[in-house]
Write a protein that binds this DNA or RNA. Sequence first.
DNA 1: AAACATTTTTAGTTTTGTCTAAAAATATAA
DNA 2: TTATATTTTTAGACAAAACTAAAAATGTTT
Lengths: 217, 217
Amino acid sequence: MTYSEENYLKVIYHLSIGNTKGITTNAIANEMDSKPSSVTDMVKKLAEKDLVIYKKYQGVSLTDKGRQHAVMIVRKHRLWEVFLVEKLDFSWDEVHDVAEQLEHIKSEKLTDKLDEFLDFPTEDPHGDPIPDREGKIAKVEKQLLSETELHQKVICVGVKDSSASFLQYLDKQQIALGSSIEIVSREHFDQSLTLKVNDRQLSVSYKIAANLFVKTV
Amino acid sequence: MTYSEENYLKVIYHLSIGNTKGITTNAIANEMDSKPSSVTDMVKKLAEKDLVIYKKYQGVSLTDKGRQHAVMIVRKHRLWEVFLVEKLDFSWDEVHDVAEQLEHIKSEKLTDKLDEFLDFPTEDPHGDPIPDREGKIAKVEKQLLSETELHQKVICVGVKDSSASFLQYLDKQQIALGSSIEIVSREHFDQSLTLKVNDRQLSVSYKIAANLFVKTV
DNA sequence: AAACATTTTTAGTTTTGTCTAAAAATATAA
DNA sequence: TTATATTTTTAGACAAAACTAAAAATGTTT
Ligand SMILES: [Mn+2]
Ligand SMILES: [Mn+2]
Ligand SMILES: [Mn+2]
Ligand SMILES: [Mn+2]
């Protein structure tokens, strides 16, 4: 399995979540900053290897085998992110690019020993679940802050967008995983929100709220 | 810098040690299990990038820039080997293949943080020196056990061959870095040696002794 | 110095993964 | 239900990194 094949599998996996139909070549190309024609070529190769199901003009979907491979890459990616934050003092906005490289290291023993070394974490630094060595992913109920009712007390448990710029914004506003949040008011005009974060008052745009996962306490 | 270019640089670096003349394409091909014609192509590309000096039929040598790159790959390789052994309980015969992958991860911050996390080790699990972040390598005086005098008390400090089969042999014979060794006698017929290792008596072939580095106490 | 052997380079292919441009299929609108 | 727009695939090209086979240079013997 090449580096490139793994990246395609992972992208198809992520696009598949909450999507019953086939993933379009356009969507994949868009996600990978490549061209639809390149995707068509690669998708044929993956179909040849029984990693995806592909019928012309119908989009693509993962086989069980393909999903299993993809999940293992995600497992490695998130374990390495935990390692970087917990052991090497990286901040949560610095880990993604390095994990993009580390996720391709091939050694089941390494992955499992790393998991053990980190004390079998269930979530990565962005609140995303870490598949176990069988590929099982623990379901956690969480919702977007933007879909949370007024005055409901919640705790921040994850981010939808984990780009460096969003994460740095959250740092600046002192919002982190574990922060307690309550929506104090909604502005009708632009959907912006006034929050109480760990008893501090704070105003955020709709877009911010639409990228924060929370759970009710 | 591609994965492949890095592997070439590293091989040229290792072949350069204790070798003043240019490294031949044949030697490189041999070391990489590839063909001389492939090496010629790559070496031209490396010369183009000022990483090596190359003149037709004259072999190749590293520029300062090329050596610096190579040393950084060696640094990463050896730091990861220490990590695997010290933190993840790998044995010294299991680490090389994984380190071959990890040495290509590009992040200066990762390398330096890992170095710090490991407490700035000066040697890898096979006794090889670890370059510091400037690329400096501490010189350690060590000699081969095969070139050591009778009854001289020495300590095992490294291995010349670090293949899994040799390392496993040493495990079986309970010879490790730090073991105290003394040559009790030499067999004239086949150059084999009788050793006293940590007060145990042991007979080894010449080939074994020619792959063990020791230092006098 | 000529003859032979070895090493090294060149020339021409192959595979992988990408691209552009054009053709074909599908989706949307008049 | 045609016409138009969009999406997707095909065809053909390219760069990277490898290979084989042949040519050229170098080394070694007689
Ligand atoms: Mn990530
Ligand atoms: Mn993450
Ligand atoms: Mn090694
Ligand atoms: Mn080593």
